[in-house]
Amino acid sequence: MKKIIIGDHIVKAFGEGDEQRNVLDGVSVEINEGEFVSVMGSSGSGKSTLMFALSGMDGFDGGKVVFDSRDLSAVGENELSDIRRTKMGFVFQQPTMLKNLNILDNIILPSMRGNRKNVVKISEKARALMKRVGIAELEKRDIIQVSGGQLQRAGICRALMNSPKIIFGDEPTGSLNSKSAQEIMDIFSEINADGTSVMLVTHDAKVAARTERIMFMRDGKIVSELKLPKFDGMDMDGRLEKVTVKMLEIGI
């Protein structure tokens, strides 16, 4: 199985002198192509920091990250931007949309950079994605005119626009009600079923239980891992139980 991301002994420190503390304390992670993984941990465990490091959004102090066979620490700032734009997709807890643009413009934004000639193709793709996640009728709305769940779907569309190799989700259901959260998770499963790798950061056991590998973090280290079969819509309760048992076992 080809690895899409290899994180090797990543160290990231915050603070100075006696106050210094490793938020990532030599973390090693590997994610396979087409894999659906999640990282769990309480707040401050370093799970979001790990995601920022793996996606090249933030630097780190030790170790290395290889994405799609390229060492990210050897890549310049501009190339990192290009990689994020063309090969990665991001979904955040708060919908990170630009206030000035309507929903459709927000979705196509990352695809339009230096690619304006293909606007027809791009908008066709955006409309198809919007239809797929059920927000086809919202394209002309301002972002303040739609609900949180709808906005999160738009965010997923934006993440999918450039057909990324991996989607990172940082608490993507954190601010949604349970029905919306479930619908969003269904979309992630669908995306994954199409072959895109997905890595979610969450403290919600229900979210983690939908993924096939769960890494548990505490104090900047991965302390345990749980493997589950690919989710097929069945036995959600059983999966959830396994996750919660593991959580109790390692005490997070």
Partner: peptide, 16 residues
């Protein structure tokens, strides 16, 4: 700051 951070996360460079 916030929208600049979003843009950067989406792959816009500093020169963009």
């Amino acid at each position: 700051r916030y929208s600049i951070a979003v843009m950067k996360a989406l792959g816009f460079t500093n020169s963009d």
